Computed example of a mutant assay.
Amino acid sequence: MAGLEFNFGNAISHYSKTGGPRGFLWKYALVFGLVTLAVQAVAIWLQWPIYEMYLRMITEGGDIESHASEINRMSATVGFRGLWIMPLGILSWVVFEGANQRRYMRGDGFSLRLGADEGRLFIVGLIWFALFIGLYIGLIIAMFVPLLIGVALGQAGAMIGAIVMILSLFGFVAVALWIAARLSAAAALTVRDQEIRFFESWKVTKGKGWTIVGAWIVLFLIIMVVFVILYLIAAALGFGILGAQVPGLFEGNADEAAVSAAITSPAFWGPLLLVFFFVFLVQAAFQHIISGPAALAARTDDDWAGADLAGEFV
């Protein structure tokens, strides 16, 4: 991209400097939100018996002990159905990641497709999955080995082991974030070069890893503030609806049956679902925005002679 350098400020704001037709972000967020809502609806439909049982338990007074055996039996049966939703989740990821990276690397407008880019991104996703398993194993080692050594040394050693475990945990998180940052351009490179690129990201992000991590942290803190505000709005809305429907709720003398009926009514869930749908939209926008730092690293690769893109979108 002409005149665009890789630095902290550009990494954070790269989503707004991709070039191409305007309106990508809101279209991406809206369609992503609708697809996420549809996938969640299918998941609820597949596991509806367990949800129905919990609703019945609430309306009958919330006695979980009398429903314990039924919950265990139903969870084992219905939980397996939840695995059926995985193909939909994977399909959703590859098509949106394809649209995401085509915007960054080619300046395309918003469109969803299932083609060669998506097939290559699926392989990249599998490599990430294997890497996450390795990192998870490393996390277990980082947490428990120091603690086990400390326990073996006695009471004083247990305290030392706990301290070492905490320090090693922080160290592991820092290293894991750095590794993730160094490999984070894999999807962008795969779409850019139209070939599977994963470990090539290590070279492209040389000297840029901690800048990418810093950008991620800042963006994550911003989105966390937004989420907290949205959840506070949802909580205030929920309590407001219940307070209007259930006399004596805030005085502590509300009727349990009235509370149960209000919680399970469409008048309670309808407005909250609108708020949570907006949460999906924000989550979708964040998914695109946080890809920006790695995509900028791929766009500013000195060894890439790609065409420059100009312009911004809103």
Rank of each mutant, 00 (worst) to 15 (best):
W128T: 07
L147S: 12
L169S: 08
A185C: 14
L189E: 11
A156V: 15
V173G: 03
L148R: 07
L167W: 08
V145K: 05
A185I: 06
V164T: 09
F129L: 15
A152F: 00
A142Q: 04
F129D: 04
F144L: 10
R182T: 04
F170T: 03
S168R: 06
I163Q: 07
I141F: 14
A162M: 11
A174D: 01
I133C: 14
L169P: 03
V164Q: 06
L126T: 14
I149E: 08
F172H: 07
L169G: 10
Y136F: 14
A174F: 11
L153S: 08
L183Q: 11
A180K: 15
Q155F: 00
V145R: 04
A158S: 13
V151R: 15
L167I: 03
L153H: 00
L147P: 03
V173F: 14
G134F: 02
V164S: 06
L131G: 11
V191D: 14
A176M: 08
A186H: 08
I127T: 06
L139I: 07
I166V: 12
I149T: 09
L183G: 10
F144R: 00
V173T: 05
I163C: 01
R192V: 13
G150P: 04
G161L: 12
F129K: 15
V145W: 10
A152E: 03
I137Q: 02
A158H: 05
M159Y: 02
I140C: 04
L131I: 13
I137F: 09
Q155H: 01
Y136S: 13
L167V: 06
I149V: 14
I163D: 01
A180T: 13
L169T: 03
R182A: 03
I163M: 11
L177V: 14
I149K: 10
A142V: 02
R182V: 00
S168Y: 12
A174C: 04
A187C: 09
A181Q: 12
G161R: 11
G134I: 01
L189F: 09
Q155C: 02
A130D: 06
L169V: 03
G154N: 07
A162V: 06
R192N: 13
F144K: 05
A130F: 03
I179F: 13
A152V: 02
G134L: 08
G138C: 01
L135A: 09
P146V: 09
I141G: 09
M143Y: 01
S168M: 15
F132W: 09
A186N: 10
A130L: 15
G154S: 05
R182P: 03
L167T: 02
L139T: 07
A130V: 12
L167N: 05
A180Y: 15
A185R: 14
I127C: 01
P146W: 01
Q155L: 12
I140K: 00
A188P: 09
F132M: 13
F129G: 12
V175Y: 04
A156I: 15
F144C: 08
S184I: 02
F144D: 06
M165Y: 00
L135E: 04
Q155M: 12
L126G: 05
R182M: 03
A130P: 12
L169W: 08
M165D: 04
I127A: 04
A185W: 11
